[in-house]
Simulated scan of single mutants.
Amino acid sequence: MNDVLKIAIVPEEIVSFLKSETNYKEVCQNILFQRVINRAVRERGLAVTTEEIEAEAERQRREKRLEKASDTLAWLADELISFDDWEIGIRNRLLAQKLAVALFSKEVETFFWQNSLGFEQIILYQLIVSDEKLAQELYYQIEEGEISFYDAAHLYDIDDNRRRRCGYEGKIERGVIPTNIAAIVFSKPAKELIGPLKTEQGYHLFMVEGLLPAELTTQRYKEILNNMFQQWLLAEAKSLVRSSQISSARD
Rank of each mutant, 00 (worst) to 15 (best):
V10G: 01
V10E: 14
P11L: 02
E12I: 06
V15Y: 08
F17I: 04
K19Q: 12
K19D: 10
N23S: 05
K25W: 06
K25S: 13
Q29D: 07
L32P: 05
Q34T: 05
V36K: 06
R39V: 01
R42F: 07
A47F: 14
T49Y: 10
T50A: 14
I53G: 09
I53L: 15
A55Q: 13
E56H: 05
E58V: 01
E58F: 03
R62K: 14
E63L: 14
R65A: 09
L66N: 12
K68L: 12
A69W: 02
S70G: 07
D71G: 00
D71P: 08
T72V: 13
A74W: 11
S82V: 01
D84Q: 12
I90C: 08
L99C: 12
A102E: 13
F104M: 04
F104G: 10
V108G: 06
E109S: 07
Q114W: 03
N115L: 09
L117N: 14
Q121H: 15
Q121W: 10
I122M: 11
I123K: 11
Y125G: 06
L127T: 03
V129I: 14
S130H: 10
E132A: 12
K133T: 02
K133M: 04
L134A: 11
A135N: 06
Q136D: 12
Q136A: 13
L138I: 11
Q141F: 01
G145I: 05
F149L: 07
Y156W: 02
Y156G: 04
I158V: 15
D159T: 14
N161D: 15
R165L: 15
R165W: 04
G167N: 09
I172N: 09
I172S: 06
E173C: 06
I177A: 05
I181G: 06
I181S: 05
S187Y: 02
S187A: 15
E192W: 07
L193C: 03
T199K: 06
T199E: 07
E200Y: 07
Q201Y: 13
H204N: 10
A214N: 04
E215C: 12
E215Y: 06
L216N: 06
T217G: 02
Q219H: 11
R220M: 15
Y221S: 09
I224V: 11
F229T: 11
Q230G: 05
L234I: 14
S239H: 07
L240Y: 04
R242C: 05
I246S: 12
I246F: 07
A249N: 08
A249P: 04
A249C: 00
